[in-house]
């Protein structure tokens, strides 16, 4: 765990959960940015200054940015939350950079969720593969269903979660969700971006909500209003730091 030393876009101190080694860094963080603030608008890219990282640069990886958008439609409040991914990298040992996309200028407060592996390259010539564990949801009355692209890979220090959704039973589409992830490490606590779903009121981005994983249990309180009504299917894609290695 570490905290940022400064940033150039007017956010406060940012707390990171981390696993670092000489080949890569896995970072988890969630913070807000006001895209209408003068500091944000003056920055060509978001720069977060941090204490020495174990790597001096990284490849470019995606981080999620989302906004809340609640509207009253036909007398009902509906969730039109949206978002996308931004390009991020470790620029040097003390700087994490995140793309500033003009689409979000002056959109007010947005949330950035970092669940990323910042890798380096040219580290030898031994491509490896790992065994993945297919994700099984345990629910008393099953109502959530995964696609065949739902799995995790558990490293000693982190977990990679790829969670492709298939559908949920119609009666549950607007209710809070909860499911135990069978055999998923219980030492992961994180908010993750729940990406996808049609977003008719914000057509330039996709629907994006937040889910929570703790003690091997996946929960999601609410989601985009039209989830369950055809493609595109939502998913979670996250590198998550395990707590017990700290």
């Amino acid at each position: 765990m570490f905290v940022s030393t400064s940033n150039n876009f007017g956010a406060g101190q940012i707390q990171f959960k981390d696993y670092q080694c000489s080949l890569y860094v896995v970072l988890n963080a969630k913070f807000t940015v006001n895209t209408s603030s003068p500091a944000y608008l003056a920055a060509s890219r978001m720069e977060i200054k941090v204490p020495d990282l174990s790597i001096g640069r990284s490849v470019e990886v995606p981080v999620a940015i989302r906004f809340a958008d609640r509207r009253t439609i036909s007398g009902q409040e509906v969730n039109c939350d949206g978002g996308t991914v931004l390009i991020s990298k470790v620029a040097d040992k003390n700087t994490i950079v995140i793309e500033r996309h003009r689409l979000f200028d002056n959109q007010g407060e947005m949330t950035i969720i970092i669940s990323a592996m910042y890798a380096t390259l040219n580290n030898g010539n031994n491509p490896q593969k790992v065994q993945r564990t297919m994700l099984q949801l345990q629910q008393e009355n099953p109502y959530l269903y995964m696609s065949d692209s739902a799995y995790f890979v558990a490293d000693q220090h982190w977990v990679f979660l790829c969670m492709g959704f298939s559908h949920c039973l119609y009666d549950y589409k607007n209710l809070p969700w909860e499911a135990t992830l069978k055999d998923f490490p219980t030492d992961v606590t994180a908010d993750v971006a729940f990406i996808g779903g049609v977003n008719a009121y914000n057509p330039q981005v996709c629907g994006m909500g937040e889910a929570h994983i703790e003690n091997g249990v996946f929960t999601m309180q609410e989601r985009m209003y039209n989830f369950c009504e055809g493609s595109p299917k939502p998913f979670v894609f996250a590198f998550l730091v395990r707590d017990t290695q700290e």
Partner: peptide, 20 residues
């Protein structure tokens, strides 16, 4: 594309875990 939007052109980028 196996989930999310299928719009093209698209920029695919980042790190993925290779599995058996």
């Amino acid at each position: 594309t196996i989930a999310g939007n299928t719009g093209v052109p698209s920029h695919v980028f980042g790190v993925g875990i290779r599995y058996e």
